[in-house]
């Protein structure tokens, strides 16, 4: 009806709805997700609070939280949600939007790891652990962790010296080019 006509400005909440195919307003803030989250103790904001920020339009707060990067995607929340709200998917979308907006990531090593991992796939089609470790260490300067585990893995043949390149390597590169999230200017 005419008196309801308003011009709708697209919001981050709309973007999330598009990516996840679910409306953030579905969440009624019962907190069951936070109650069961195995990473809860390491987070700066409870997962339900991140959803609340989005519902309230406090996007900065949501996008800047460490919580979105600590979410391990274990799906405990999604599978127990009384509203069938897929919170893990929601978290994916919030991270994606944070990257798009060039938000500085609080737990930066987590993102560096993901980026190093994806570079392996982009370049070779499959993950190459040796390259991944090298890449991650070079970008994170986290040089000395886990060095004691590598010799055994090398000896057991678990760390391949050379990467396996899939035949469709170029296709994979093109998939990345078409779908990778780029920072908005």
């Amino acid at each position: 009806m005419s008196h309801h006509n308003t011009t709708h400005v697209r919001t981050i909440s709309d973007d999330i709805s598009d990516i996840t195919s679910q409306n953030p307003e579905l969440c009624y803030q019962c907190g069951k997700c936070s109650a069961g989250c195995p990473l809860r103790n390491y987070m700066d904001e409870a997962p339900n609070v991140v959803v609340r920020y989005i519902q309230l339009g406090l996007y900065e707060k949501a996008l800047n939280s460490a919580t979105i990067w600590l979410c391990a995607g274990c799906l405990t929340c999604s599978s127990r949600c009384p509203k069938n709200f897929d919170l893990a998917k929601f978290m994916d979308a919030v991270r994606e939007i944070a990257l798009r907006n060039g938000i500085k990531v609080k737990d930066k090593n987590i993102l560096k790891f993901h980026k190093a991992f994806l570079r392996q796939i982009k370049n070779h089609g499959r993950s190459w652990e040796m390259g991944l470790v090298k890449d991650y260490k070079m970008t994170s300067f986290d040089l000395f962790s886990d060095v004691e585990n590598s010799p055994k893995m090398l000896l057991d043949g678990k760390l391949n010296i050379f990467p396996h390149n899939v035949k469709g390597k170029d296709k994979i590169k093109s998939i990345f080019e078409k779908t990778e999230v780029k920072k908005c200017k």
Binding site: A93, H114, L118, I121, G125, V166, T179, E180
Partner: peptide, 25 residues
């Protein structure tokens, strides 16, 4: 033949489409 990575966690935490596309391939 010529399977590639499913994208694992790293893809879906950064780009929904990338994750879907890698699995879909």
């Amino acid at each position: 033949d010529d399977w590639s990575c499913c994208g694992a966690t790293s893809a879906h935490v950064t780009s929904h489409k990338l994750s879907l596309a890698l699995s879909a391939r």
